[in-house]
Computed example of a mutant assay.
Amino acid sequence: MTDLISYDDVIDAAYDIFLEMAPDNLEPADVILFTAQFEDRGAAEVVETGDDWTEHVGFVVDEETYAEVRIGLVNEADDALDDVFARMLISRDPDHKFCHMLWKRD
């Protein structure tokens, strides 16, 4: 099997994709909020892969090959990522590029 991309590289790739797609997929107010607050409170982190991905992507998700990244703003009081702007399922296999985004919907 191919060497998998590190979690740090997955976070970097996910964040780049998020920045490119956010203006077309988030409300303008959310884009402004994220941009204004990112320096102090922004975060992109790998989390345990959610059980709901199979219904969104149409295949059983192998948790070794895929990672879930959440991107949003951290609550300063408890350091929890509580304002999530996007959840992304991204492949760690460099030969099989894949990502699927679930965007914040109010």
Rank of each mutant, 00 (worst) to 15 (best):
T65K: 06
A36L: 13
S6E: 05
A44M: 09
L89G: 06
W53F: 02
V61P: 05
I11C: 06
L4G: 02
D106F: 10
A14F: 05
D106R: 14
D3Y: 02
D16Q: 12
P94M: 10
D30Q: 06
V57R: 11
D3P: 06
I71R: 00
R87A: 05
A77S: 13
N25M: 02
D78N: 15
F98V: 13
V57K: 08
M21F: 13
S6Q: 05
M88Q: 09
V31L: 15
P23Y: 08
F85C: 02
E27C: 03
V47W: 08
D3T: 03
V10F: 00
E39I: 13
D95E: 12
Q37F: 01
G58K: 06
E76Q: 14
N75I: 01
I90V: 10
F85A: 02
A36K: 14
D8R: 06
P28N: 09
N25V: 06
I5Q: 05
D24F: 14
E76I: 11
L19Y: 03
D79R: 13
E45H: 04
D51N: 12
V69H: 01
T49D: 12
C99T: 09
D79F: 15
A80D: 12
F38Y: 13
D3G: 01
R105P: 00
L81D: 12
I5D: 01
K104S: 00
V46G: 06
M21A: 14
